[in-house]
Amino acid sequence: MAGAKCNYALGFLTIIENPEHGLFGGYLILNRAGRPLEFHCTAPVKPNRAQQILYGPTLEPFLFGEQIGQSLLDKARSEPVVVCTDREPVLAVREFTKVPVALVLPPEEPGAETTPGHDASANEAPADNAPASDALAGNSPAVAPPAGGRVYRCDPAHGYGRCGPAFRIGPNRLAVSLLAADDRQAIAERLATLGDWFDLAEPFQRIREAIEEARRGGQ
């Protein structure tokens, strides 16, 4: 493969769920100007019934982070300063890389509370009220309120696939893994020089289109 390594690169990792074919992973590395340097994608991955039963609520973090995410990160030639994802379970990949991983959250609705990402239904137990981010603010993912609020299972494998409270860098709303709270500071430092115009959510649309293009091309 040709191409030079870039001294400042950003990684964008996401998983596309196709009802017919299964899961497609896509990993795009951009330079500071938003231009593509590398793109890696997976063949479709489909968990079997046994995996679905036995992995239970940990299936998504396992598939998204450990299986697909790790495979894609291992293929890249450039090491990004930050890996971004728009799927919360992908945060589990943090266990297998030294690069900080950020969850890019959708823009806040006017008047809405700051809450973590969209895969919040996975891996959680029902409770009375209070959002997870309130209960789990700080560095201790293992502490769940004895009554009220959502109760999380919090062994390490589960923790990497869950995000903590949201924070802002420029126009972008981010969160990090519950078990990698220090990433927040590292991400803030590493993205400090990025232009205000850089929309960290936009590249995921490119990945979706590229996977669709690759899928059509492979047929």
Partner: peptide, 11 residues
């Protein structure tokens, strides 16, 4: 996991 990789020239 089977993967495909594409590397593009640096702008």
């Amino acid at each position: 996991i089977a993967t495909r990789s594409f590397v593009f020239p640096e702008p």
